[in-house]
């Protein structure tokens, strides 16, 4: 039996904001090449957890290990690429310009960066838009560019925070296929509110609420535990309840 090594591990990760516990002793292990879905209602602590994993936020307690090494310095975090929930793009740069710019910020040599940018643009169906200013692209195209920007330094771990938000069905299929293709070489962690999407894409799912990881398992096993005809949404509701979670 082949043992797949752990790519990302968090140990008792904790974060509070003015007394409010956003993430409460979060421990999770994600294997190399896995597509891991992090699900949870609004304000459950998904984005805060992601920020701590990427190093954007300092945890109050706990540890993050990347490829078995404590990720407390910048060098370790270089193996992580993040596509944030909101569009984070330079509107006055073309697609190609900003891909090369972000690659340069990761010290990727120019020749490699140009080759990688061409490949990635082609895979996301944006080749024709290569020299267009990002602000002239449609919302869906900008979303796809947002994902590509996280890949220019070829990270081993890719974190996608609600990547399918605002995408039309065609783009969503393209992004889904893209994520599947990435999983051959990368570990993908992604958050979503779309249960069907998570069910289709993820190898394993973690459901988080009130900053605590409630369960981690494969979608199939989760559904089986609820009932024969159960959907992932049934699992989600049974664990997190029906109460509305409006974000402040």
């Amino acid at each position: 039996m082949v043992t797949v090594p752990t790519c990302l591990k968090t140990e008792n990760l904790r974060k509070t904001f003015n007394g409010f516990v956003a993430v409460d002793d979060l421990s999770v292990e994600i294997k190399q090449g896995e597509i891991f879905g992090l699900l949870g209602p609004n304000g459950a602590g998904k984005t805060t957890s992601i920020k701590m994993i990427t190093g954007l936020l300092k945890p109050d307690g706990g540890k993050v290990y990347i490829n078995g090494t404590l990720a407390n310095d910048l060098d370790n975090r270089q193996n992580v690429g993040i596509c944030p929930q909101e569009l984070v793009l330079w509107n006055n740069l073309t697609c190609f310009e900003q891909m090369l710019f972000i690659a340069a910020m990761y010290n990727v040599p120019g020749k490699i960066a140009r080759k990688r940018a061409v490949e990635l643009l082609a895979r996301m169906g944006l080749t024709e838009k290569r020299n267009k200013l990002v602000k002239t692209l449609s919302g869906g195209m900008q979303r796809r560019m947002n994902i590509l920007m996280a890949l220019m330094h070829d990270p081993g771990i890719l974190i996608l925070d609600e990547p399918e938000a605002g995408l039309d069905p065609q783009s969503r299929i393209m992004v889904r296929d893209f994520i599947h293709s990435l999983a051959k070489t990368k570990t993908v962690i992604f958050t979503t509110h779309n249960m069907d999407e998570a069910d289709r894409i993820c190898d394993r799912i973690g459901i988080i609420d009130h900053g605590k990881m409630l369960v981690t398992d494969t979608p199939e096993r989760m559904k089986q535990q609820i009932g024969e005809e159960a959907t992932l949404e049934d699992v989600f509701i049974s664990l997190t309840g029906r109460k509305l979670r409006d974000e402040p």
Partner: peptide, 8 residues
Amino acid sequence: LRLKLTRM
């Protein structure tokens, strides 16, 4: 935010 994650 994106720049913060790089080596810049």
